[in-house]
Design a binder for these strands. Structure first.
Lengths: 227, 227
DNA sequence: TCCGCCTTTTTACTGTCTTTTAAATATATT
DNA sequence: AATATATTTAAAAGACAGTAAAAAGGCGGA
């Protein structure tokens, strides 16, 4: 997920909390909840949330005061949800450190988009998932593979083959399956293509291509990556 | 003065422009104005505005496309003003790079508060606007590129292409993706444009254009900058 | 508005890299 | 040992990329 830190919801209305719970967790966010200002401040301090959604109309505290208290140390985004729609309330909340202000009832899709905006601004680009196998690393999103940090020059077919095998580390993939995935369903009989490309790949990724350690042959069946 | 760079207003309605002129300058902001998308893009590039206020319903261009075009190089806040109030419009604008979205008619005090929020944030998180690659440096805010401190003369398309690749250093970008980002979604088949512009760029940025070190070809896939 | 300049698009050609095919050699399985 | 399966190499075919230059389009200045 984008961020493993939770979104902290501070709201006394149980319906709103339920709605946010469902919407946010359905979109892959972790959540933590508080029903009072006091509890909210404690949870903000202990749970280091990635973002705080704050209801201005809490029974036990003034919303503005909570924003100010949070902003003494909390740098990440604060989004206000409030029934109050007066310009004065909005301006005061924003000027005291809130990042955004939505009035209830709000549209969940819009809230999600505004959360994305806030998080986008507060965080640096997340690292890409990279598959590692000894001295070989394969970056699927960047379409690059490295060997001891040196870029390996691979053709698109070679990369597709390597990626398929690497994604299925330890599994035996049959010739037919590999051919179907890499070349397409019309090529399941062209085992020879596979042999040629396996040889090319081994030259590029193996220390000793004649004694492969990564790209292993399962005679009569297919190939297996790793293990 | 909060910031000596102006706020750029892109709106075709003269009443809105007058209103914003008065409100913003009364609050100490400098302003510059454009009445069309085209003019807006030019002024954004030449005037390095501290913030852009953009009307989505311009007569000469699709608002979303303008946001995308701006976001190819413009890092500072973009606030949308629009008569459209549908959730879909709001989400699309925000997800394509807008920082905030207000529907017309808007309250000037709220707009000012949201401008303060946006500027506050853009000062906290100043993205490094100058990318460096060996003897090449690319200044995204000023739309300029240098080679050994000599200014390189680039057309706007050339710059957009270079900026896109440079921002994605080390990643392989597909032909389709590059074409979509630089030319627009109707051009994903025009790989020849790309070849011509890549050749032009290489002449300008590479020591030896025939043996590129920065702008690398990934045959059958696309191009990769650096690494 | 027209002219000239600059940028983008189009065209035609050449060169390079990738995939396919083929054939000879090696290894595994029974 | 015989047979099937796999590896390796290299050349042929095909796909893809680079280049140059002309045509078209857009823009600003006279």
């Amino acid at each position: 997920m984008i961020n493993s830190d939770p979104i902290l919801i501070i709201d006394d209305e149980v319906q709103i909390r339920r709605l946010l719970e469902i919407t946010l967790s359905a979109n892959g966010y972790k959540i933590s909840e508080a029903t009072t200002g006091k509890e909210g401040l404690t949870l903000a301090a202990t749970g280091h949330p990635a973002l705080i959604i704050l209801d201005l109309g809490l029974p036990d505290a003034d919303g503005l005061e909570i924003i100010k208290k949070l902003r003494e140390w909390y740098q990440k985004p604060i989004i206000i949800l409030s029934v109050r729609n007066s310009e004065d309330d909005i301006i005061k909340a924003l000027d005291n450190g809130a990042n955004d202000y939505l009035t209830k009832p709000f549209r969940t899709g819009e809230l999600l988009a505004r959360i994305r905006v806030a998080i986008r601004q507060s965080q640096v680009a997340p690292d890409e998932p990279i598959l590692e196998f000894g001295s070989i690393s394969i970056d699927l999103t960047n379409h690059t593979a490295r060997r001891k940090n040196e870029l390996i020059k691979l053709t698109s077919t070679e990369f597709a083959l390597l990626a398929l095998l690497a994604k299925n580390e330890g599994r035996v993939l049959t010739h037919q399956y590999i051919l179907k995935e890499v070349w397409g369903m019309g090529y399941t009989e062209q085992t020879q293509y596979l042999r040629v490309f396996v040889a090319q790949l081994r030259k590029k990724i193996e220390d000793n291509p004649a004694r492969p350690k990564l790209l292993n042959t399962e005679s009569g069946i297919g190939y297996r990556f790793g293990y």
